[in-house]
Amino acid sequence: MILLLLFGAHLVSAGTHSLRYVYTGVSGVNDFPEFTAVGQVDEGQLVYFDSKMMKAVPKTEWMRQNEGADYWDRETQGLTGEHQNFKNNIHILKERFNQTTGVHTYQVMYGCEFDDQTGEINGFFQYGYDGEDFLFLDLKEMRWIIPVQQRIITVDKWNNDRGRLEAFRNYFSTVCIEWLKKYLEYGKSSLKKTVSPQVSVLKKSSSSPVKCHATGFYPKDVTISWMKNDQEHHEDVEVGELLPNEDGTFQKTSTLTVTPEELKKNEFICVVEHQGKTFREILKDDSLPIIIIVGVVLALILSAVIGVVVFKVYQKKKGFRPVNASDDGSNSSARTDPQA
């Protein structure tokens, strides 16, 4: 679903902003919470809940300052209900897959994003079970899609429930966006900050791959590349996923596979670009890394596409009713409402 809207003037920064919620249910692990929920703005944690502490808590100081007890009571009440829903769903899914033992996971991710330059709005809603994509809502066609055909008995029923689908449309196009804009306003002083990455090149042994690790940077847009003897080098390079740090910054790793002979004969440099600055770290042979920070080389303005690609979730195989979206905007997050 793509809509064009006009937004207020108090936006944090140019580019794409997102609000998303990730709910995870786990079965078969004793020392891990049965249910966890994380709310994120621009991939930084906003709110957290798990079934051990049974309480929704703020993850930023600006959320703690701007939302009072009523907000956190509502979030706690809703997420407590989600905990029971997830327990029920995992139980039913295990029965349908004839699973009696082992570790099983059930996950839901949903949210919205907008580009404050173009006004484009998008929403995403995805289910999964045991490590495989399972079911998602196509907001352009307003229908549920099964990536891999399976015996799901209620998809047609969901697609025929036009009232619920319209509630989804309203949530993702209006309610979710309004809350995202509110959170961005709350945290504008923090979210506008720029923190440069700390870059290190790590090599455990002469035969192990070389890892370039960038961490502690904000905002999240970053590129990591390699140079060999001052030439771009793309062979045998694997770039890892963007990961959040506890303090709201991010980290990312790029791995280069290179033989000891190549390393002795050539100079390899990791190049990290962030917010118009370039950071280079050299590892030649087995010498200790030397950090060289270079000035502005290239303005880095990359809009992060957060949606479903980043979300590698688990596969689900039974019918349950999805979120109970609020039409009046009173809740920042939609709620799942599964039924067998």
Rank of each mutant, 00 (worst) to 15 (best):
G15V: 02
D70W: 13
I153R: 13
K265G: 08
D73Q: 13
D115G: 00
S13N: 06
Y110S: 11
Y127W: 09
R143S: 12
V237H: 05
L4C: 07
D221V: 05
K55Q: 14
G102T: 07
E281K: 09
R96D: 10
Y71E: 03
K228N: 04
F268S: 03
H233N: 07
F49I: 00
A214L: 03
Y48C: 08
I306M: 14
V222P: 03
L3D: 14
L243Y: 08
Y127C: 10
V310S: 12
Y129L: 05
D247E: 15
R164L: 10
Q65P: 01
N245R: 12
K264L: 09
D285W: 07
I177K: 03
G295Q: 09
W226K: 00
N331L: 15
L263E: 13
E82F: 05
K220P: 08
T24I: 08
V148E: 14
T253I: 06
P322Q: 15
S27W: 04
F86C: 03
D337G: 07
K220S: 10
P147M: 06
L79I: 13
G119D: 03
Q198K: 13
F134G: 06
V239G: 02
K228D: 02
V199P: 00
L202Q: 12
A56P: 05
N266C: 14
G123S: 04
K181Q: 12
G131F: 06
V258Y: 05
N85P: 02
Y48E: 03
D286T: 11
S18L: 01
R335T: 10
G295W: 04
I92C: 12
G8A: 01
A304D: 09
T118N: 08
T257K: 11
I282M: 14
K265L: 14
R321S: 07
T80A: 15
E95D: 08
R164F: 00
V305E: 07
N331E: 14
A304H: 15
